[in-house]
Design a protein around this nucleic acid. Sequence first.
RNA 1: GCGGACGUGGCGGAAUUGGUAGACGCAAGGGACUUAAAAUCCCUCGAUCCAUGAUCGUACGGGUUCGACCCCCGUCGUCCGCACCA
Length: 883
Amino acid sequence: MLLKENPVMATERYNPRASEPKWQKAWDAEKLFETKNEDPRPKYYVLEMFPYPSGRIHMGHVRNYTMGDVVARYHRAKGKNVLHPMGWDAFGLPAENAARDNKVNPRDWTYSNIKTMKGQLKTMGLSLDWAREFATCDPSYYRHQQKMFLDFWKAGLVERRSAKVNWDPVDMTVLANEQVIDGKGWRSGAPVEQRDLTQWFFKITSMSQDLLDGLDTLERWPEKVRVMQQNWIGRSEGLLVRWPLAKGTAPAGESELEVYTTRPDTIFGASFMAIAADHPLARKVAEANPKLAAFIDEVHHMGTSVATLETAEKKGFDTGVRVVHPFDANWTLPVYVANFVLMDYGTGAIFGCPAHDQRDLDFANKYGLPVVPVVKPEGVDAASFLITEEAYSDDGKMINSRFLDGMSPEQAFNEVATRLSGTTIGNRPQAERKVQFRLRDWLISRQRYWGCPIPVVHCDDCGAVPVPTEQLPVELPSEVTFDKPGNPLDHHPTWKHVDCPKCGKKARRDTDTMDTFVDSSWYFARFTDPWNEAAPTTLSYVDGKGGWLPVNQYIGGIEHAILHLLYSRFFTRAMKATGHVNAVEEPFEGLFTQGMVVHETYRGPQGWVMPAEVKVEEADGARKATLLADGTPVEIGSIEKMSKSKKNVVDPDDIIASYGADTARWFMLSDSPPERDVIWTEAGVEGAHRFVQRIWRLVADAAPALRDVAPKAGTEGDAATVSRAAHKILKAVGEDIERLHFNKAVARLYELANVLSPQVAVVNDGGGERAGAVRQALEFLIIMIAPMMPHLAEESWQALGGKGLVAAARWPAFDPALVVDNEVVLPVQVNGKKRGDLTIARDADQAAVEKAALALDFVQKALEGKTPRKVIVVPQRIVNVVA
RNA sequence: GCGGACGUGGCGGAAUUGGUAGACGCAAGGGACUUAAAAUCCCUCGAUCCAUGAUCGUACGGGUUCGACCCCCGUCGUCCGCACCA
């Protein structure tokens, strides 16, 4: 048998399937990622939005948790005491649906999903502190939530009241305002109906102003999210104005109509009043007016189907009632019921000024009401300024407004406010300034089983009574049935029947559970001490000196821009008010919203097809797809968010099994900026995997020569070039990671690999400085890829003979002398066009640079004998010769 | 309708925020190695032209500037959020 001679450089391919579990075990054995609260080093808290345990992780999780892990590992390497925990947002409706459909217990279903997903997350090699793990459905978690609910109640931050609420007919539960998107339930997508119900509310509106002001302090939040929250809170400054009803037109017992306006300056342009269909005055008039009653009924029906609302025509009905103008006893205006006026904003009544509001103008044109302009643009003649089809809503000068004429709208606003505040009708001023918010109270009652029970007992004599602290938690019963529609807790034969904690009489538990957004509104605080059995938080650890909050870097999806993030901001303030945190009000100091993972769609004769079933080939510049199974042609569709319905999903398990976690992580970080969507492609993954192998080859090829070489920066020739590149890139990568510019850091690392490849190939040859310089550059490279591809980094570190684990290694410091060059290459322009380069000493002065530039032959040639008028020298940047 | 973001090669994207446009990657083409393939390595890769070079080029039209992807005015397009909020 012929023995094949082993080539010297032969290197086995890196095998992630063998390496990755090995290093994960090594980290676990060292308890490397378990964080101690007492650790004296500076703290850094990085958190990714915790997942709902739906069953399996998806690529969105992979992207989110990879980013967080890079941040965590980087700051750990920089010497911080890093908190990087993980848990489960475990309450919610899918568990009940699974229970109904598959006859499994929601608890069993949830914990089994958690087990699966935890296993999947472990294969990703995330540097998480699993010792702090909890699920929000653990009674040991929600007991504290119940305690805080009661504390909030005592502090006046909780209220039970009857209100018009959003009813989701599919999920059979009520929803908070924020959870109604385009008139549909945020989860079910079903059109939401309005119902009158008695429910629990968190009084988030009591903090409207503070929540708005707090946004200004969130410098490390995306502008976009702050604007969205600002709009959601919706502050406006205006005037409440009371208009007396004209005698003889008002129904018995009614004497005035109060409206809210942000444009009191346009009061002389008023031509009608419009009130909501539910306004008391409308109801009263309707009692004696069947036609109006029919109109109101019509509005109600339209109101329920929100889809039609967007296109709905502006309609009104003249009630016959007239109001008297506050500044002219002889001027009366009609009162209409209008379908576009909302009862629950302001007073449910407005005055219409058609000239300066498009909606009012449309309405006035439809019903033949007067249109009188009272604000004219600068430089336009008042007499000829007419409004017909387009309302004028900009600034200008007051006209047709008696004592307001000539003023600016702002002055007129103040003048009207002052005058009307000074006059009284019925012992009250006729007007008062009012700041109005769009934000409504947070409705937290849900008529569902799988949520945190509201710890209240209803007694016929004592009313709503808090469950005493020592009886917490109020635990969910385990025997429940889901065969009837409605709330399983309410159907339960025994659970709700208890004695009143106050008087001992027979009473009933509240059968509602809390909105699951309550669970996620404080989990970040619980992570700081999840072991505390006595209280939700431990004051010495939760915030302030020696505490963790605020979260230094929070990472998650933009879809929570309002819901989760606004609720958490409220909850943190409420926790402060009830002594559960020391001082912190804003829970998230830095927020980053990452983009989605998107993928091409494929459609075959039988509908959507998964990427795994498709083969894509490129021929003659056109990409063609066929079914792997039988070669049937498949149509390549648009790139969309990965979703089950379009089947354009890639399973993280499959990717990790075939390429390894490091490849998946690297791909998630390359190319696309993290805030933008990333397109998952097979070619991209393969590219990432090629780089993994390339790094391994680089290390393995260099290891024999470098194992016993001490790292040292080079000063001459190739060695100097390598070291300069390595130190510059070390500096840049650190800065990029700190700014979360992972794609740029990745590009720098490719560059370093490109610089090192030819050096490694010759590192065995000459002696000199090269070996030390290459060794140092390789170490830098390994430490820099460690946050991104931690397993490959460990394997490489070991091959090079590094001490200990890279996961515990310190981030090296770059040498400032090596990141600046002694000579700089300045581009030289003539009349703004680049003609060549000038290489000159870094510290050359202006005059020297100017002289050297003018001496260049290409400059002389471009000047064509003309004398330069001016030479602009921007130090270290550019030279421009102007002729 | 209101508010916000964005528009750069075949593609994803860089460009120190007014100073060399296209870093880095993907795709493509050519070559080397190989019996062959894979892997790997090397080269080319914005467009045009009288191709040793030059001209044009960052959605489009103007402007400011010695100099504009970047600032200003206008137009077109894409995406996101809010939407009868008085």
